[in-house]
Amino acid sequence: MSTKRAMAYHYSVTCFIYFLLLIPLLATLVYSLCDQWGATILPSGFTFKWYIQLWTDPRFLTALYHSMTLAVGTLILSAVLIVPCVFVVFYYYPKLDTGLNILTLLPFAIPPVVSSVGLLQLYSDYPLLLTGTPWILVGCYVGIALPFIYRAVNNNLRALNVHDLMDAARLLGASSTQAFFKLILPNIRKGLMASLFLSFSFLIGEFVFANLLAGANFETLQVYLYNMQQNSSHFTSALVISYFSITLILTLLATRFNR
């Protein structure tokens, strides 16, 4: 095969795959911007009214607020809980790394539906009445964020010369805790931020826990989206595109931080 023909092949294959991946998104975008698209191939009537209707709906704004505060709160808690652990394992107990590694994969290996079976039975009654409140979601979402934060911080620590840095800090009279906050933390900030943004887009996309454990009592963006399916599909399209734009901005921010 000549190089020119080979390149033509590679370009057409890549373009075709990405075109396939784009179709649902493009169609949703067009759908959200037109007045009517019934049983015809082409849409008619360009309008912004679905977006205006969506962004003035108080229920949507509440759901957005719920999702945002839930995700931000969870991520702050996750960072506070997980980062010191990863550092302590890395610096003091490197042998525990394998064990912690397996533990981080646990949330991946167990489907959320399966966890929900146990969670619904354990926390639906006194003394731990958590179902229907955002607190149970916070607990579950820490598990979802765990693998991302663990990977990022661990990789960052590997790239640093942690032992020399800590020795130098102690030689200059800093305690281990001081050295962690003033020296290690600023050095892993970038990777940590990138992993937090990545987890953020995962968390606001979470549906199973949100629907089964909190449901209508604490409606998140995804649950709102699900409950709106009886509405006009133009309206839901505007919702999907708005939701997707939010994730897009976050992914872009994550890649910015990752550089």
Binding site: Y18, L225, S233, V240
Partner: peptide
């Protein structure tokens, strides 16, 4: 970067998008 982005496109929003494209009166179906 685009692949990264579409990997987030799953669940409820994805189902809605497919109803528009491939549902009974979806554009591609037609």
């Amino acid at each position: 970067a685009f692949t990264n982005m579409t990997s987030n496109f799953a669940g409820v929003p994805l189902a809605f998008a497919f109803i528009i494209v491939l549902g009974f009166n979806g554009a591609i179906t037609l």
